[in-house]
Amino acid sequence: NIFRILADLSHLASIVILLETIRKARQIDGISLKTQILYVLVFCTRYLDLLTFRWTSLYNTLMKFFFIGTSVYVVKLMQDCKLTNPVSYKDMMFRDTFQIKYLLGPCALLALVFNYKFTVLELCWSFSIWLESVAILPQLFMLSRSGKASTLTTHYIFALGLYRALYIPNWIWRYYSENRLEKLSIFTGLLQTALYSDFFYIYYRKVMKGRGFELP
């Protein structure tokens, strides 16, 4: 359905924006390495089904490889910055102070409690779905501490937030057309979108009206 396609395109766009930002500017100011590492973990644990060869579609498989590949590549690009632009790297590390153990622990626990089946694959899947919902927090925390961000960085965060927000009408669509109700995805998707709500509001007020992103 249209929402699902737009959502996935928005997700692709966010990654392209991020890669272009890092490659062109040759700096990683305002981008959280911790959030990017969490995404590597999210995709690697979610797409373990690639190993079972029970593929749903070519589209699905290609996208999964794309998300795993680009998330690893982003982390590598950011690590390269340690040598190519040490000032930018140090500045990023100085600001990227969110303690991710407070996300990993609870997500692991939630995965043990809420899952569809008590198997390694399903537990990893559930862990990834919980972790994705909060993976942006180090990034948002960094943003709120520095108070402003480059326009490109805010476009990246917006596109990334929009992707999960668009999955919500997709789930409503699927409920009516296929009678499908995937409770875990829906709940964590709502949680994830809620975490972005504040950012969406400021993005709408400032960036869409041509002003820079600056927190009140």
Partner: peptide
């Protein structure tokens, strides 16, 4: 039930 669901989303 939920167990029958396939993860066909990304």
């Amino acid at each position: 039930s939920d167990e029958a669901l396939t993860h066909d989303e990304l």
